[in-house]
Design a protein around this nucleic acid. Structure first.
Lengths: 190, 190
DNA sequence: CGGTCTCTTGACGGAGTTCAAAGCTAGTGG
DNA sequence: CCACTAGCTTTGAACTCCGTCAAGAGACCG
């Protein structure tokens, strides 16, 4: 659990006592490559903090095509927030792209931490805000940049990730086909 | 100020006393068509609640091209949140598209309400969450839908707005050129 | 090894852009 | 209230970016 507690400590001021309370509310889980943590249309019962490995969050459109919304590598959160917080059915799927070590929390324990640990509330507020800012940036970038520019930006945003996961997921994240990403990459070498 | 207070009351439970406190912290402002409320690279000193009229938030890319990030019609908020909350320079511009009546708040008064009115904190948390959910949806839609589908979705998301503002701003919001939107529209009539 | 999954390559097609010109509309000043 | 202008929309032709389809080449399992 040290990765999660470390992330908390580096984000907000929190006592060791409270860290233990937080720690007790999370569950350690292991997922193997290709295993799903959440399926579309199910209820998102848990949120996930990735300690080791890599998860992807993706949606499926009306034509059955998958679209990668985000990746979660070490020290990133995943989860369908809307489903988790509003108890609606999920619009996203979450899948492990590598064998992964994850700390997860259910809604009951989440509410308990929110009630009892003020520092946890601050932590989640900062998380949500940063996510809001990041999404704002991404919307602007999708409007402003070409596929090639978005790919370069991705390489900086997720360093080394391109060597860890299949490229087709990166293409999907960028909003292009795997074939076109392949062509971009071969053109870049020259 | 009644539009803002009404919006608060319809979102959270709040006493009339507290409503008065909130009311006292906001400033009524009028902006005429084409007037700017915020410029890129300046500090976003205020957030804006649109009571009448329409605002647009847009970014400018490295080629000098404008990209519409969002519109704010009646009962919608505008503002560069990241700039406002983190006291950074703004990445967006905000401009009135019609003569508009706006209630705005500066950072000092914002912090005051956050400290003293718990219902206001709840209100902002709901606002931010809904914005988070909406942005998530928009990212998925931009990945999943064609320009034509995004335009149809826009017409539902912002009913009647297409009759109020120049189409070139809608095209920019959709991530296409005004010429192509014009072609889409003429093809739709047949 | 054999089969599945992934990446590459190329030909073709369609979606969307660019540029230019002309028609419309709305605001502005006389 | 009209005339003029500036900005907005439409149209069309040529072009670019990117998708689709199909085939083959690696790469990674069991």
């Amino acid at each position: 659990m040290k990765e999660l507690l470390q992330h908390l400590k580096s984000t907000v001021a929190i006592s060791d006592q409270h860290l233990e309370v937080v720690s007790a509310k999370f569950t350690e889980q292991h997922f193997s490559k290709k295993e799903h943590l959440l399926y579309f249309d199910h209820y998102a019962k848990r949120l996930y903090f990735t300690a080791k490995g890599c998860l992807r969050t993706y949606a499926i459109d009306f034509n059955g095509v998958e679209h990668n919304v985000s990746f979660a590598v070490e020290n990133w959160w995943s989860g369908d927030l809307k489903s988790f917080l509003n108890k609606e059915s999920a619009i996203c799927n979450i899948q492990a792209l590598e064998d992964s070590l994850v700390f997860s929390i259910n809604r009951e324990n989440w509410d308990c931490l929110v009630r009892e640990i003020p520092a946890f509330v601050s932590y989640t507020r900062i998380l949500f805000r940063n996510k809001l800012f990041a999404q704002q940036d991404r919307i602007i970038q999708n409007l402003s940049f070409t596929a090639k520019e978005r790919y370069h930006h991705f390489l900086q945003e997720y360093p080394n990730l391109s060597q860890r996961i299949p490229q087709k997921y990166i293409a999907s994240y960028l909003g292009i086909t795997p074939e076109f990403l392949s062509m971009l990459r071969s053109r870049m070498k020259k």
